[in-house]
Amino acid sequence: MNKDHLDIDNLTRGLLKKSLQKPASSDFDEVLMQKIIQAPMPVKQKSNGISTKKAWIFWIFTVVFFIVSLLLFTWILSGYLSEVNDGYKLTINYIFYGGLALFVPLVLYYFDALVQLMFIKKIQNVSIT
């Protein structure tokens, strides 16, 4: 920002600071307070969204569960595959990696939904209307 621009900004700020206006009615505050007293009490509302802490715990458990299942599945499969012939082993491998290739996007989609649930819900709650 150059000096001229800063000067204009400061001049505008100085002028606008003088523009603050007050309501003309002398009883503005009292009339408003009367309306407030007569209005129903505001009700404290609980958030409908999942708490961030709970969502993180859920998220971490999901990741751990996924990794453990994958390791377990590989371990079982490797034991089983050592007893069969090479042609059969190859077929099982194709099924396993093919399944994995389908499974990964599914898991990513699931994580995306989870992240949206955690964060978009928070953004929606900021809305005032």
């Binding site: 503005f28 408003l32 309306k35 209005a39 958030s47």
Partner: peptide, 21 residues
């Protein structure tokens, strides 16, 4: 003035929904 009063009343009414974010 009317707008300001209505806005304060609305703010009072919705204060429970204000999450202070």
């Amino acid at each position: 003035e009317e707008v300001t009063q209505d806005a304060f009343l609305k703010a009072y009414d919705s204060l429970g929904k204000f999450e202070q974010r």
